[in-house]
Design a protein around this nucleic acid. Structure first.
Lengths: 188, 188
DNA sequence: CTTATCTGACAATCTTGATTGTCTGTTTGT
DNA sequence: ACAAACAGACAATCAAGATTGTCAGATAAG
């Protein structure tokens, strides 16, 4: 009956256990977002996928939207990082890196490419930041917001068409198609 | 107590009255889709906006989604027609016509530009048909699905950026930005 | 061994909105 | 004037899913 903060279960501290459950939930959510879409991924589904119960959901997230936001932020960061390291510096390689990353993680892909509800201001903000950062990688030097919007729109929609066709086209083809549009934005 | 089909109210036949209510509902829905988005436009809201009650909603539409589909189809058709007649034949003028049409009808604009839940197969089908038809107007001759996707994505996202900035940029500027991408798709 | 804490399952509650049903008064044809 | 069909308001029902609360059993610390 000493302090509770020290107590361990399964060899892990309380924080570690909570963090682990949180991780499980985020992973499960991402998988479900990819499988059925964010709108149809219920709390119950996510918990089942994670092997936890609703009690633990609300231990780590205030509500359903909070989980979505957390996953979205994490996924944006991971995707940007992946593209950056694979294509360091080279704008041309960045497109290939982007599509490669999307092909490797279907859940992640669907999150961006299929319908994303830009519902809350927070999500909108994250999406905007991501868009600017990604545009800087695939079309560096394009500063006009309209042109940047065009680049992002073209790239994302191409990715979507590709994914919906079950990744039929080879990555080089897809990247080449997208490259046309990034070049168009950069020419004087 | 003769046949009921002939009976008139307010000088209109039954079919005319029903059709009028249906029209009111569709107009109200379009207005609300623009104002709060399709997802948050409840049946109750739409009926209130139309000055009718829920009873009449289900007189004309099987459910909420049926109304959305009907409005979406009508709006696609109207928009295509508008662009066609204003830009007859000329692909360059088509872009200007598109943005003009969007500027004139905010409700209509939001329906396309803000991300649309491609939930049902029917909606997806309508959207796809619309995409192909519009692409044929603004980028004639582009047959590769990936390039067409790029053109549509760039155009729509530019429109969205424009609208979200409250139509700040002049139409010529927006059309010129979009034209870059349509040209990119058409060059060998 | 005993107790406090944790776990997992589950039921109870709440919200929101769709959909259906009823009721009262109004309009129109005869 | 009268009856059938209509209009409008509104309550009742349904459904889905989120969020919260309870409880019995498991686990670790003392």
């Amino acid at each position: 009956m000493t302090m509770s903060a020290e107590r361990r279960y399964g060899g892990q501290s309380q924080e570690a256990r909570i963090a682990e459950r949180r991780e499980k939930l985020m992973r499960a959510a991402l998988a479900l977002y990819g499988r059925v879409g964010p709108a149809d991924a219920s709390v119950a589904m996510i918990c089942a996928e994670a092997g936890l119960t609703a009690r633990y959901f609300y231990e780590s997230f205030a509500n359903r939207d909070a989980l979505f936001l957390a996953v979205f932020e994490a996924v944006c960061a991971r995707l940007l990082e992946g593209v950056r390291e694979r294509a360091n510096g080279d704008g041309g390689a960045a497109l290939g890196a982007l599509f490669t990353a999307l092909a490797e993680h279907p859940g992640l892909a669907r999150m961006f490419v299929v319908d994303l509800h830009h519902d809350s201001d927070e999500i909108r903000a994250v999406a905007k930041h991501f868009g600017v950062a990604l545009a800087a990688l695939i079309a560096p030097g394009v500063d006009d917001p309209l042109l940047r919007a065009g680049v992002m729109g073209a790239t994302m929609r191409i990715a979507r068409a590709w994914i919906e066709a079950d990744y039929a086209a080879p990555i080089e083809t897809v990247a080449a198609a997208a490259a046309r549009f990034t070049l168009a934005a950069r020419s004087a």
